[in-house]
């Protein structure tokens, strides 16, 4: 029960970068328990991708790559993981808090009799127990939570909260393993993935987000935010007011009933700062607010503010940053 298993998510032939943050989390746990870290990669190309995490202090990477796990299914992946967990002695199983991790982790926890902590932003190990910090009430508060009893502990870790692990020069053993999945076990299967237009990063993964509120007035006006976001390699977000008014799309909504984000730079344009929006972005490292109204609550949470018309300020800011980069 001292060992840690981390789940490496494969999407579009790539390993999600949160895996290196999971290794850091794994080290926090194993420094407390004295155990080792193993990784499991499930999906097409698992063996090739295992190279990229070799030498991070992982004892063994288990690669599962057969036809039954080529496409994601909760039940197929849960079978693969729960079989491995049942015949091993992992006390801690870590996932990224991604769409897949949040879907898969509780199902495996339910199957093997684990306890789960969702969307953790920090971990520490004290007096023989793992203390996880996680947001509640959509980020309006945080709690520290600990396991009670001897159940394996499942943790989903939010991306961008703890630093990625650096190589420690050690060797990682690579082993292959069959999924153990047969077709009849899969009653729900992901058949196709349709990328959103725009090719920008997802707001939960982006390092920069340029967000617009009701003051954007029209969906076409979001293009000026898009130009700034593209310049910075970032994503475009929106407030609930902008989504409800039809100016933007639900997957881009930041805040309660949308997504909780944690970029390095968050630029709020024409967003007044309703409590449910603030809950979703207030942990951003640097917050910039651009708003006509000097009394808008967003300025209370921002680090830098410009009182002014976003339709003047944002294009000018884009031009100015172009000069700097």
């Amino acid at each position: 029960m001292n060992d840690v298993l981390i789940f490496g998510e494969i999407r579009d032939g790539n390993l999600k970068k949160v895996i290196k943050e999971l290794v850091t989390a794994g080290r926090i746990v194993t420094e407390g328990t004295g155990g080792s870290i193993d990784a499991i990669l499930v999906g097409r190309g698992a063996s090739d991708l295992s190279e990229s995490i070799s030498g991070l202090g992982i004892r063994k990477t288990i690669c599962v790559d057969d036809d039954q796990v080529e496409k994601y299914s909760t039940e197929g992946y849960a079978k693969t993981l729960s079989d491995l967990i049942a015949e091993s002695s992992y006390g801690y199983i870590l996932f990224g808090a991604t769409a897949m991790g949040r879907d898969l982790s509780p199902r495996v926890a339910a199957r093997v009799g684990g306890v789960m902590f969702s969307d953790c932003v920090d971990l520490r190990f004290e007096e023989g127990r793992c203390i996880a910090k996680r947001p509640v009430y959509s980020g309006k508060l945080f709690v520290e939570i600990v396991p009670v009893g001897k159940k394996p502990v499942f943790i989903t870790l939010r991306p961008n909260n703890i630093p990625p692990a650096e190589s420690d020069g050690g060797k990682t053993e690579m082993v292959s393993r069959p999924s153990g999945v047969t077709e009849d076990m899969i009653r729900a299967l992901a058949t196709e993935i349709i990328p959103m237009a725009g090719g920008r990063p997802d707001i939960t993964e982006a390092e920069v987000i340029v967000s617009g509120g009701r003051a954007m007035k029209d969906s076409s006006n979001f293009e000026i935010l898009g130009e700034l976001a593209d310049l910075l390699g970032g994503a475009v977000g929106a407030s609930r007011a902008a989504v409800d008014a039809g100016y933007s799309l639900q997957p881009l909504q930041v805040g309660q009933t949308g997504k909780i984000v944690n970029p390095k730079l968050y630029i709020a344009c024409g967003i007044s700062g309703a409590i449910q929006h603030l809950a979703g972005m207030r942990t951003s490292k640097v917050i910039v607010a651009i708003n006509k109204d000097p009394n808008a609550p967003i300025f209370e949470k921002a680090h830098y503010g410009i009182v002014g018309d976003l339709f003047e300020v944002v294009p000018a800011l884009t031009e100015e940053i172009k000069k700097l980069l």
């Binding site: 508060l141 939570i145 009670v148 000097p294 410009i306 000018a316």
Partner: peptide
């Protein structure tokens, strides 16, 4: 219960916002 909350935490107070002054935008 298989878990227990040991602490509730409020968010840290955010620092002062630097409102940027200038002649024009």
């Amino acid at each position: 219960k298989d878990s227990t909350i040991i602490k509730w935490l409020s968010l840290p107070k955010s620092g002062e916002c630097k409102i940027i002054e200038g002649e024009d935008f």
